[in-house]
């Protein structure tokens, strides 16, 4: 057991947007099956960190590995490897011209080469899991925000990913819809899948996270198990942040 394979591994990763450095020397190892919650003020680089994992952003230096395979913009195997990584966006990003079912079928049929009947079977069972099987033939615009986000989760799961990334999945939702989406994510967390969630929902973090990560100004400032993290944060910056978001 000299070298363990991590689900995700960051080594000295730097990233710039032009001359603004968004990620500064990121080192992070995420084990298979681990649930990570990333929080921090806006502009701290948490979304960018997550988007580097599935190559939606390119990093300029350092190394990112997903299941031991290096992520880089140059490698041709990108799209194949990335199907191991599912993603849920803040703005849902469902395909508005397709029905719920077609949204779920597109990836499995075109990218994985599944037959229609196999893909449909998978889609229906996942819609049941996110508790909206009755919406299968509707268009995204006919659904509420919470329902749309649950479809987006099902769409990502249709690819049977090993890692799920959530980029502020409840930030664009009306308050009364947040819990229906979080419930689905918590259910998912109980299974073996590796999860990385960017969120400010601290109640959710306490329930679901194995490890908390606090970022500020492009750096990972603090990491720790949720109990210690919330009770006695080590850094002042983190203390201040937690006070601000937990005071209400």
């Amino acid at each position: 057991m000299s070298k363990k394979t991590f689900a995700v591994e960051f080594k000295n990763v730097d990233k710039w947007f032009d001359d603004f450095q968004v990620l500064k020397n990121i080192n992070l190892e995420i084990s298979v099956g681990e649930k990570i919650v990333i929080c921090g003020p806006s502009g701290s680089g948490k979304s960018t960190l997550v988007r580097c994992i599935n190559n939606l952003e390119n990093h300029q230096s350092g190394m990112i590995k997903v299941y031991g395979h290096e992520v880089s913009s140059k490698s041709k195997k990108d799209s194949k490897m990335l199907t191991q990584v599912g993603m849920v966006f803040q703005q849902f990003n469902l395909f508005p011209h397709l029905t719920v079912k077609e949204n779920l079928l597109l990836g499995p049929m075109k990218a994985l080469g599944l037959s229609r009947s196999d893909a449909e079977e998978r889609a229906i069972s996942l819609l049941k899991r996110v508790k909206i099987p009755e919406q299968v033939d509707k268009y995204p615009s006919q659904l509420s925000g919470g329902q749309q986000q649950r479809v987006a989760i099902a769409r990502a799961l249709c690819m049977e990913p090993d890692i799920m990334l959530f980029d502020e999945p409840t930030s664009a939702l009306d308050p009364e819809m947040i819990s229906e989406v979080l419930d689905v994510i918590i259910d998912l967390a109980k299974e073996g899948i590796t999860m990385i969630v960017v969120t400010h929902e601290m109640g959710f973090a306490k329930k679901a996270a194995d490890r908390m990560i606090f970022m500020d100004e492009g750096r990972i400032v603090e990491t720790g198990a949720p109990e210690e993290f919330f009770k006695k944060p080590k850094t002042d910056r983190c203390k201040l942040f937690l006070n601000q978001i937990l005071q209400h």
Partner: peptide, 23 residues
């Protein structure tokens, strides 16, 4: 078309031509 559409297509494994023609 919003950039998120291309990104979502990428995360469900579609290549450039599939993204263009289906999304």
């Amino acid at each position: 078309i919003e950039k998120g559409q291309t990104e979502a297509a990428k995360t469900v494994g579609l290549n450039y031509y599939q993204t263009m023609s289906y999304v």
